[in-house]
Structures are given as C-alpha cells and as structure tokens.
Design a protein around this nucleic acid. Sequence first.
DNA 1: CCGAGTTGATAATACGTATTATCAGCGAGG
DNA 2: CCTCGCTGATAATACGTATTATCAACTCGG
Lengths: 340, 340
Amino acid sequence: MPRITQRDIARLAGVSQAVVSLVLNNRTDATTRIAPETRQRVLDVIRETGYAADPVARRMVRQLNQIIGVFTYESVFPSTSADFYYPFLRGIEECAEQLRCDLLLFTSAPVTDGRRKVFHENNRLRIADGCILLGRDIPHDELARLNRENYPFVAVGRRDDAGGPVPCVGADYAAATRKLVERARELGHREFAYVGAGEGAESADDRMSGFRAGTRGGGRHERTAGRSAGETLDALLAAGVTTAVVEGYADGVALIRAARERGVDVPGDLSVVVTGVPAESADADIASTGFRIPRREMGWQSVELLAALLEDRSTTTLKRLLPCHFVEGQTLGEPRRDRS
Amino acid sequence: MPRITQRDIARLAGVSQAVVSLVLNNRTDATTRIAPETRQRVLDVIRETGYAADPVARRMVRQLNQIIGVFTYESVFPSTSADFYYPFLRGIEECAEQLRCDLLLFTSAPVTDGRRKVFHENNRLRIADGCILLGRDIPHDELARLNRENYPFVAVGRRDDAGGPVPCVGADYAAATRKLVERARELGHREFAYVGAGEGAESADDRMSGFRAGTRGGGRHERTAGRSAGETLDALLAAGVTTAVVEGYADGVALIRAARERGVDVPGDLSVVVTGVPAESADADIASTGFRIPRREMGWQSVELLAALLEDRSTTTLKRLLPCHFVEGQTLGEPRRDRS
DNA sequence: CCGAGTTGATAATACGTATTATCAGCGAGG
DNA sequence: CCTCGCTGATAATACGTATTATCAACTCGG
C-alpha cells in the first residue's frame, strides 16, 4: 500500500538514504564517492523493486521533472475537433519520446463555460517542468499571468505578446496567404475578396495581413458571421470578385457547394482558395485549393522550443514560424474573359 | 524572483506559518481555533499578494498525486491505429476529468522491437498513483510483475490471471459472439464456421468460446493465417458453410469482397458476421453485420475501477465485462433453400 | 606510532505545506 | 494562591528527495 521510498531501498541495500539518492542521480563528483559494489547493490535493489523517484518530492528540491505538461483549452480527445488536435498531439508525443519526457495532460482543470482555465482554485501546473498550450484561442490574461509568474510555456500557434514575449510555434499564415493571392494573380485574377472574420485571433490577423500584402492593399472583405453561404456568394458575384480567399475550411466548402447548386462554375466563374486544408479531407467530392498547416511539425517544435527554454532561459528566438505547404486542388483556375 | 511562500505571508501578517495553512484550508475543528480578526488579517495579506499554495508541496503531504498513468504498448497518437485507441482515450479522459485527476502518458518508455515495455531500466511508473494499460496484447510477464509489486493497475480488455487476478475492463465477446450465432440459427442457418485465429489472445479465446456455445460445440474453424481471402472462401463454400463468423473486421471485409468478385451472393449464398465493427466504417460500401465494442465505455470504466482500487484495495469485482451492441448490417440473411 | 591524506558512507538539512502536540495567557472557582 | 478549563497561537514534525557537512576507517610516508 505505501509507496516505495528511498528509505526502503536503503534498508534493503543496507545503506543510507543519501547513498540511494547519490546512486540514482549518478553523481560522480570528487566529493561524493561510492564504492562500485555498493552502487551495484543499490542498483540491483532498485531494479528488483522497480522503484522510481517520486516526481513530486523531486520537484520540491530540484527544478526539473522530465514531465512536460499539455494544457488543452478544449478536451484532449474530443469527437468533433479530433482532426484538429490529433496531428499536434502526434508531434508532441514524438518529440517528448525522443527527449525521454513523459506527458502530463491536465485533465484535472475544471471545464467552465465549455473551456478550461489554467488558473483555477488549485492548479497543478507546477507539477510539470513546463507546459504546452493548445487551443483555438487562448485568453490573453492567462498568457500574461504565465509570463508574470515566470512559468515556462510554449503556445502552439502564433500569439501576440502578453505582458512580455509569448513563446510560440506558429504557421506562417501571412506568407502562405499572400502566396495564394499571388498565384491567382499570375493566372489573371484581379478582383479578390477575403471571406471570414479576418480579425479577432492572431491566426485571422495574419491571414488578413497576408491577403492585404498580396492585393497590395486592395481587395474586398466579406464577413461570414450571421450570413448564409448563398448570401456571401451573391455579394461576391455582385462585386465582380473572381477569387475568394476563404479563412475557414468549412466556410470554403459551404461556399463551393452553394456555387455548384446555383450553377456557378468553380473555378470558371469563381475561384476559391482555402487558408487551411485538413490533412484528410472528409468531403472527398471537393478538392479545394489552398495550403496545409504543418500541425505535426508544430507540435514537435513546440516541445523542442520548450526544452530549449528549460535548458537556457535566455533563448533568443522565442517565436518560430513554419511554412505551410501549397495544396494543388481544383478550385483555382483562370478567370473567364468576359468577367475580368 | 523567488516564489512566495506561506512563510512570507506569515511574516507579513505577523503570525506563524501554521496559522496561514490553517486559514488557507479553512479548518474550523474544535482543536484548531483562530481568532476572527487574525483570520481576516491573513486573508487580507493573501489577497494583496495574490498568493497561491504550491501544488507540488501540497501533493507532497497528501500521499496521492491525483495522477493516473496511461501506458500504451504502441504509441499513443499513432496514425494507423488511431481508430483503435481514440475511443478508449476519450473515455479515459472524461472519467479522469470527473475525478479531478491528471493523466500521465508514459512517453518516456523506450520503444524496443516496435513496442514499449513497462519495466525498463528506470521506469517511472510510480509517478502515477495507478496505471491504465492499453494495448492489443500485453505481455504476461509484465502483468505478473505488476501484481507481484502490488502496483495498482487496470488493463483495458479482458486478461487472464497472471500471478494473481488481473483487474480489467473488457467487452463480453463470448456472449456477443454467441448471440450472433443464435441470431443466424433463428434465420435457419445450421452450418457455421469461425474464421480467424480463435486463440492466442484472450479476446480470440472468448470469441471462440462464444462461437462454440452458440453452435453447441459444432461448427468449423477456418484459420486465415497464410491464406488469401479467396482460399478461405473456397474452403467455406466447399464445406457447405452458410454463416461465417469472422474474428477480424479487416478479414471480414476481405471475405465479403472476395465473394462479390466471384459472384457469390452475400448474404444469399453466404452470411458473414463480424465480431467487432468499427464505430465509423471506412469502407462505406460494405455494411457488415456484427457487434460494436463499447470502447469509450471501457475506457471510462477502467479509470473508475482504478479509482476504486486506489480507495479500497479490497475491491471485490476486479473484472468487469461490458455488453457489446448488435449492429444490424446487410450481410446476414436467410440461407438459400437449396443449400441448407 | 603518529599525522596527513584518501576513501566511502552517513547525519543533517532544505524544499513548502499540513497536521499534531504543546504552550502561554487568562478568567473563574475553590 | 493554586488549579482547572478554555482560548488562541506556535513549535515540531512528516511527506520524499537532493545536497552539504561531517565522520569513521584505512593507507602511507616518515
């Protein structure tokens, strides 16, 4: 019933608790010497008993635990956003495995208003050495507080500063979105529209800024909030738009569907590019053009960055931006002559 | 910037550390009394400083870490067996969340020969209060050692005893398989065959024993190892079998495909039932009849069982079997007259 | 045979919190 | 004046590990 402790190991090996600790940590200083046979005896007992140091106690004295926390602002294994999280988690796990770290999922954080909060009654953040933050959007005040408390963390997805620089690994939406626009321009397109919120979250800001860069400051902005795909389509066609840059994948699919239903040819009458195509498209009938977010790589690098932070707090490059991969779909083509 | 402690609070409020702790935990026993004004003074200082008790030190005192380990014998977030693990993990997470426990994924366990081992050089099993074991098959010696070391654990999937009873939460394959056979019998079937290994793993044993019970000890056994689906099909037809009970879903699909290619009608000429239909069939063209394994529920209950073990080691029901749900597909029907 | 140096191990302590035993002070009753 | 009972607070300790100071035993040169 009671947990095995160093004291137990010591008793079994006929040594003191201190020796067990020294052996365990493989200390070989000039000041701390241990006879080879004694060391072996201790190691044998450890192996036989399967003893492992209590991380909580270890954490009391040391600073590192070989445990990386993973905090998700939604549940970790959800049904709906499975496709969203899974690639991140794969990358995180793979890197953690290589670093010989365990992963602690903060499932104990209570869910209020449909989302978790890092800072609740008695948060257990400090059990882990540091933490990976995962979530569509992360409250600004939580990031600020993490910074204030000097807790090592890395956010997955680019984040603005919050009471100091926020370490993060994001995808370069701006460059990727700009590239999409320029590719359309090369095909002859001149009338662009950005479809989506275009603000609110960093990811939306970046896409929009990339769009602006590609259109040299021009282009329309069609918000989707509160509108049906059909209404958006009408607005686009009425404005003479030939290329729609759609923020969300779901919105993109809906727009293409609406166009098809009305006999509007895609990409003949309207080209549609999507800023974020899922790895495995669920809608096999629509091969949308756009770019793919390197989710697995982002997960991997976020752990790597966290490890760097833990090793050396003065790491310089706190923010990493990874390139997105272009997806050659079938929804971008030359515009009709009679329109441009 | 050293972390603020109860000692600091005590100094600021002009009391002892013990009083701070007592106030913090709102202790109001007859034995521990605190003057209202003193309590208020302490509370004020706590509020002003924004102090929060160090969860690590707190866990140090209470013996349980509120951490449940999850050990997977393959990687946790794989690409291939995603469908296999995901539902289990969902259930595990949901239950852990309710219990206010965190989940520790043992990603630090080195992978040797394509699989992880619980007991390796310096395993960190004891970091968690107990552990959930997840894997297609779990080495007998590992289970035995866990029992020998009196480490609290629960296996997902039924397991035979190994040096003592093995706590587990499984699916009742025997009952479900038997039911499939009996359902076929009601439709007029008399010639059955079990297709698959039928031994080796507990899950296969259970299916086979259910099959035997349903056929009253009769029925053929067609092993698939080293044979093509076509060969198996030939053997079945030659033996006059009208209902094939297939162990693996993939084998079932292959068998049905092979039959279609040869113009063998399913279920007209041959009924096929599958002992384990995935939640979302990837092969949409084949709606196979069989039963569904309650994976999410298994995950949930395994955590629940572990929690019970941790609370009271003398828990009686160490093994739980959950019912499987019948899936009404289109591969089971009445046998042709001219055959039976 | 003695002091110095070396080897190998231990006792003591710190980390921050929770709990228990103890203690000082005080009013009242004898 | 002494003791008992009560209140309110503190000292002491435990949790399990890491580290530092200390210590006993032994070797060796002189």
